[in-house]
Amino acid sequence: PPQTPIRAAMTSIQQLRGELISTGDQPSTNLDKYFKNCTVDPTQDVLKRLETLEQTFSQRFGQAVGPRCVILGKQRFTLGVRLYYKVMEEMLKSEEKRLSVQNFSKLLNDSTFHTSLMACALEVVMATYGESSFKTGGYNPGGDDPAEADVCFPWILDVFRLSAFDFYKVIESFIKAEPTLSKDIVKHLETCENLIMERIAWRTGSPLFELLKQEHEGGAAEQVETPAMCY
């Protein structure tokens, strides 16, 4: 039978759900080991943060899609959490191999890291359901059809008050850690990257300007200290 857009979307959804069936709603034994290896165990903060993010996300999803869709938002979030845990574990495994380190306390106690990773997982889930795409993306507040509602990127950044700059940091590692992502989803994440690079990261208030200023000042200070070096 011909691969219609609806059938393609259904296939992607079934593939995503199939991938995440074995991943529970809680950290796996391996991931728990990484948490326990930390100087400061991040487990309680991770669970509390997820509760808060779920509340925020499902409320905002209901506002964008329709009041009866708050439950849909919770379902998306549940899938997102499984993907978040799965990808985090894979990221830590490859960092452990790369750095020969098992204590990731600083990273796993960084709220921005977790929020960015969770936002990316939700972006993948919504893109799979066709809710976040760069084709339709029409602004339709209150409309009950999720596919038409404005939950398209960068909506998720506003929901979690996340800077595009920080969200950008997890994208490549996310794709590397989850090789089963479909071609369309990888392309979607790459479009998010391009949008950030070309526009969003340069908006007023972006942390990028402060970082560039620090970098510039740091560079200028070096030049003053060692003028002879520059010859």
């Binding site: 990221m91 960092e95 750095l99 990731f104 990273l107 490549e172 794709i175 392309k187 994440l189 790459e190």
Partner: peptide, 21 residues
């Protein structure tokens, strides 16, 4: 899969991006 361009070098990873190296 879509030929995504991986830009991180071998000595770069999520730890460096979040200043946790």
């Amino acid at each position: 899969s879509h030929n995504y361009h991986f830009g991180l070098e071998d000595h770069e990873g999520i730890s460096e991006l979040f200043d946790c190296d």
